[in-house]
C-alpha cells in the first residue's frame, strides 16, 4: 500500500505543491490584512501556529514518512525553548546565533535519545519516546535552577536585524513563516532524494529494505536526529514570541497536540501538518472562549476527521484536486512522466 509502490503518486505531489503554495500565499495575505487593520492578537496567534507547525513537520517526518510514532516529540521542542530562553537571557539576543545553537544542540540531544529509542520498534519505540519526554519534563519540573514548576520569565525579544525584533508582530510572523517555508522546502527536497525514498521504503516494509542491503537503523536514526533538530529549532522561537518557558512545553499535551495536528492535516503530506496546525491552533483559541468543554469539541472533531477522512484533510483534498487536473490536462503529463 501507499506511495512507495505507486509511481503515479508524482501526480499527487503536484497538487500538494499547489496546496503548499496556497498555504504560504494565504499566510502572506493574512499578514498583510492583519498589519493594515493593526491587529496584534491574531498575528501572534498565527505565529504560534507556525511554531507548532514546525513541531508538526518534525512529527510528520517520523510518523508520515519513516513510519515511527513519536509520543514524546515535545521533549525536543521544550529543550529548544529552554535553551533559547537561557541563551537570550544570559548571552546574546541575536536570533541567528540562538537558532544555530538550538539547531545543533537539539540535534545532539536527538542523537542521544535516538540511540536509546531507535533500538526498539513499533509501539515500543512510541512508549520509549514517550517515557524519555516524561522523565526529562519531570527533571525540569523539579530543577530550581531552571525555574522548576514556574519556568523562566523575562526572556528578552530576539534581534533579527538592527531595528527588527521578535517583539514586532508582523516582523516575527514573517520570520516564522520564512523559517517554516525553509523547513518545508528542505523536507520536500529530501523526499525526492534517494535518502528520502529510503525513509518511505522503511515505512512501507522495513524488513525488505534490510534484505536489499541497506542499514535501516542508520536511516531511522538520522531521520530521528533531523526531526529532533527541527522540533528544537521551532521550540527556540517560542520564548522569543511569548517571553517565557515553562515545563508544560515538554508535557504530553504538546506531543499529543502535534500528532493530532499531523493526523487532521494529513499524515505524510508535509503541507497537511501545517494546515492542521493553523486550523487547530485557531480552533483551540476560539472554541475555548465559548465553552470550558473545548477539549471535548476538539476531541469530537478529531474523531470525525479520522473516521471520515482517514488520510486527513489534505490527504483527502489532494487526490480530489488531482482528478480535477487530470480531467483538464488529459494524459499528456502522465506520458511525459512515464517516458
Amino acid at each position: 500500500m501507499g506511495e512507495f509502490s505507486r509511481p503515479a503518486s508524482s501526480k499527487q505531489i503536484n497538487s500538494l505543491r499547489l496546496l503548499a503554495v496556497l498555504f504560504f500565499a494565504i499566510s502572506c495575505v493574512f499578514a498583510f490584512i492583519a498589519t493594515v487593520v493593526e491587529d496584534v492578537f491574531f498575528l501572534r496567534l498565527a505565529t504560534e501556529a507556525m511554531i507548532f507547525g514546525g513541531l508538526a513537520l518534525s512529527v510528520d517526518l517520523l510518523l508520515g514518512i519513516t513510519g515511527l510514532l513519536p509520543l514524546g516529540q515535545a521533549l525536543f521542542f521544550g529543550f529548544g525553548a529552554y535553551a533559547a530562553a537561557l541563551i537570550l537571557k544570559n548571552w546574546t539576543v541575536s536570533i541567528w546565533l540562538v537558532l544555530l545553537a538550538c539547531m545543533l544542540s537539539s540535534a545532539l540531544v536527538g542523537l542521544v535519545a535516538g540511540l536509546i529509542a531507535i533500538r526498539s520498534k513499533g509501539v515500543y519505540f512510541a512508549l520509549i519516546s514517550f517515557g524519555l519526554a516524561q522523565v526529562v519534563s519531570k527533571i525540569v519540573f523539579n530543577t530550581v535552577e531552571l525555574g522548576a514548576s514556574d519556568g523562566i520569565i523575562g526572556v528578552p525579544n530576539a534581534q533579527i536585524l538592527p531595528g527588527l525584533s521578535s517583539g514586532q508582530p508582523t516582523v516575527f510572523f514573517l520570520f516564522a513563516l520564512m523559517f517554516i517555508a525553509l523547513v518545508y522546502s528542505l523536507l520536500n527536497y529530501l523526499m525526492k532524494t534517494p535518502y528520502g525514498r529510503q525513509l518511505i521504503a522503511i515505512k512501507a516494509n522495513e524488513h525488505r529494505v534490510a534484505f536489499l542491503g541497506f542499514n535501516t537503523w542508520r536511516f531511522k536514526l538520522s531521520a530521528f536526529v533531523l526531526a529532533a533538530s527541527i522540533a528544537g529549532t521551532s521550540g527556540a522561537l517560542y520564548p522569543m514570541l511569548r517571553g517565557f518557558v515553562s515545563p508544560e512545553l515538554m508535557f504530553f499535551q504538546v506531543s499529543g497536540n502535534a500528532i493530532i495536528n499531523v493526523i487532521v492535516g494529513g499524515t505524510g503530506t508535509l503541507i497537511g501538518p501545517l494546515y492542521g496546525s493553523a486550523l487547530l491552533t485557531g480552533l483551540r483559541s476560539v472554541v475555548g472562549s465559548f465553552t470550558p468543554h473545548h477539549q471535548l469539541v476538539i476531541g469530537v472533531l478529531f474523531m470525525i476527521v479520522v473516521i471520515l477522512f482517514p488520510r486527513g484533510i489534505i490527504g483527502y483534498l489532494a487526490p480530489m484536486l488531482d482528478r480535477r487536473c487530470q480531467k483538464g490536462q488529459g494524459t499528456v503529463q502522465q506520458e511525459a512522466r512515464g517516458g
Binding site: 491587529d39 496584534v40 492578537f41 501572534r44 496567534l45 504560534e48 514548576s149 514556574d150 519556568g151 520569565i153 511569548r242 517571553g243 517565557f244 515553562s246 508544560e248 512545553l249 483559541s285 475555548g288 472562549s289
Partner: peptide, 30 residues
C-alpha cells in the same frame, strides 16, 4: 502557555482594563 495566549486575547481583542484569575504560580508570573 495557554494562560498567556488567553491574556493577550483579553488585552488586545476584548480590550480589558484589568486582568485576574490565574491560579498556579507559573501562569501568574507569565
Amino acid at each position: 502557555a495557554v494562560a498567556v495566549q488567553k491574556a493577550e486575547k483579553l488585552l488586545q481583542v476584548s480590550k480589558v482594563d484589568f486582568l485576574t484569575g490565574t491560579v498556579n504560580s507559573g501562569s501568574t508570573l507569565a
